[in-house]
């Protein structure tokens, strides 16, 4: 597992590069005037596809989770990763420890949860499953591929 040391409140990162400090713009203001900005915040209902023309220059996309029940951000993450986005993808808001694992699978590599996450619970949770059934955005080899080489 990557280094979990964060330097912002509650920030968990699974990346080795420096934290990108630029404040994230809203999608609307970014699309209206991208300028040189490289950090954007997507609200749960925002269309992640609007960022696809810019993915090569973006360094941070923060996806908001207003409630842990609102799963739209998982699809936003998949869409960005599937289009080749390699910058930091951060889940921010009501993110619970048991959600980090599926979020990692959807391509999130950083987390800014409202409530601090218990590190030992998180470690147990991330190490829990040796196998996964689906091919997703995290490069894990699905069971069917193990079965058939």
């Amino acid at each position: 597992m990557a280094d979990l040391a964060g330097d912002t409140d509650n920030l968990l990162r699974f990346r080795d590069d420096e934290v990108h400090d630029e404040p994230a713009m809203t999608l609307d203001s970014f699309v209206a005037d991208p300028g040189n900005a490289s950090a954007v915040r997507l609200e749960a209902g925002d269309d992640a596809r609007a960022l696809l023309p810019f993915i090569d220059r973006l360094m941070l996309v923060e996806v908001s989770f207003p409630s842990f029940r609102d799963g739209r951000g998982y699809s936003s993450a998949r869409i960005l990763r599937e289009a080749g986005y390699t910058g930091e993808l951060r889940a921010a808001g009501d993110v619970l420890v048991d959600q980090v694992s599926p979020m990692r699978r959807c391509g999130f590599d950083s987390f800014a949860p409202e409530q601090p996450i218990d590190q030992s619970v998180l470690r147990r949770s991330l190490d829990r499953y040796d196998d996964v059934y689906q091919k997703a955005a995290d490069g894990r080899v699905p069971v069917w591929q193990r079965r058939h080489g």
Binding site: G71, Y74, S75, Y133, V143
Partner: peptide, 14 residues
């Protein structure tokens, strides 16, 4: 069944 088991994207559907 296998595809949908712990599908990471579809665990918090509407």
């Amino acid at each position: 069944r296998q595809w949908s088991t712990f599908h990471p994207e579809f665990t918090y559907l509407p």
